[in-house]
Design a protein around this nucleic acid. Structure first.
Lengths: 217, 217
DNA sequence: TTTAATAATTAGGCATGCCTATTTCTATGG
DNA sequence: CCATAGAAATAGGCATGCCTAATTATTAAA
């Protein structure tokens, strides 16, 4: 049985890259705001259920089955986010938290009908790609905005979905998926960037810029 | 904290009439498919939280606060049912179970926006009245179809929402809210009724007829 | 190579919400 | 008034998913 907690773990492991390489218990503990011993225990259970491969002191990775379940949860999450913004008109900084709860109580039938109703959206409101019903996902090659050189332009692909204050800030700047940004200047030592968005120039902290993923134009 | 389980109990107590008169522990146990000791314990906790009034060996009733929370959950349940049928096109016999899960993960904001999107529906798909956002609900005077005399006509107000097979049967008969029914004959000793729905005549078991609530025309 | 720091595991508990078995209460009928 | 059937409460446990404290591995530094 995929309990709510199980789904949270699978989702977190996937998002932290645990489908590619072994993921440290401590990273997972931090992400889930849970103690390390709790993670140790749960991860062992995931392994027993065949959802994860776990070598003590080495790290955890997802099995094919675990990956499939993780992607199913992520798909439901992103479908609900689209529904909440596009259909109900909620602001994009509030939908992540709501979707975190809805994703665990959504049957395959509702998932399917919701996708139909939304006309098979390709991304969530923050730009992250939508896994297909078959558990496939294609991630476009992207680089952080902070990696661009002055004069280069990029189109925003995705931004962090769970940081409420940052999303409000990005809203004010107009920094959303599909927006075009041009780098005007970059201060050294990971200092602020000056970026042009539409007609306006904005200073932008390196820390923020490093979390905005773009495609180079 | 209104936990999921707490909400289930409040909802069940309300639906079994526990807001009007003391409700027996055993009724609640049966409804929730849970043992009597479990109910005893939970009901004591509800009382501690000020959501219910509980006299051991007497029964349980809801406080004003408990009633308000129950109605909030019921409102969310019925809004989701409307969404699932009207917007996503799910059959009305499947939406109860889905809504049972969605109702516990719905914030006041989503509830409000959902109601707006659905244009403030007055009933669920099974005809039960929608509580307002303020926790008011008006229940129309109704009688079971089985109480009508031959020759009398009624308009269906509501039907049981949780009985999947019965709902499928009622679909085949065309017995849904707003439908007009005329009693042609009633067999004695709680025997079957013969009813006219639209152009068609149907035999209808007394047990089923007693669960269809109508307004006399 | 030994030691210190860091990461992870094991040990032992706790709250929630359920269970079965047993006891106690209540409301009858005799 | 008392005995008894049936309902409800208490006693004692269990699974889940967390926690803190203590122990053990691993890694990096001296």
């Amino acid at each position: 049985m995929a309990t709510r907690s199980t789904e949270e773990y699978l989702e977190a492991i996937y998002k932290l890259g645990g489908e590619r390489e072994p993921l440290a218990v401590s990273s997972l503990a931090e992400r889930l705001s849970v103690s390390s011993p709790s993670v140790s225990e749960m991860v062992r259970k995931l392994a027993e259920q065949g959802l994860a491969a776990y070598e003590p002191y080495k790290g955890v990775t997802l099995t094919a089955e675990g990956q499939a379940q993780a992607l199913a949860v992520i798909r439901r999450h992103r479908l609900w986010e689209r529904f909440l913004t596009d259909t109900l008109g909620l602001p994009w900084d509030q939908v992540h938290e709501e979707a975190c709860r809805l994703e665990h109580v959504t049957s395959p039938l509702v998932e399917e009908r919701l996708a139909d109703f939304l006309e098979a959206p390709q991304t969530c409101p923050h730009g992250h790609p939508m896994p297909t019903a078959l558990g496939e996902v294609t991630v476009e090659a992207a680089r952080p905005l902070s990696a661009l050189e002055p004069g280069q332009r990029g189109v925003v692909l995705w931004v962090p979905e769970e940081k409420v204050e940052m999303l409000q800030y990005l809203t004010a700047l107009g920094l959303k998926p599909q927006a075009t940004v041009q780098i005007e200047a970059v201060a050294p030592f990971q200092g602020p960037l000056t970026v042009r968005i539409g007609e306006a120039w904005h200073p932008l902290g390196w820390e923020v810029a490093s979390q905005i993923m773009v495609r180079l134009l």
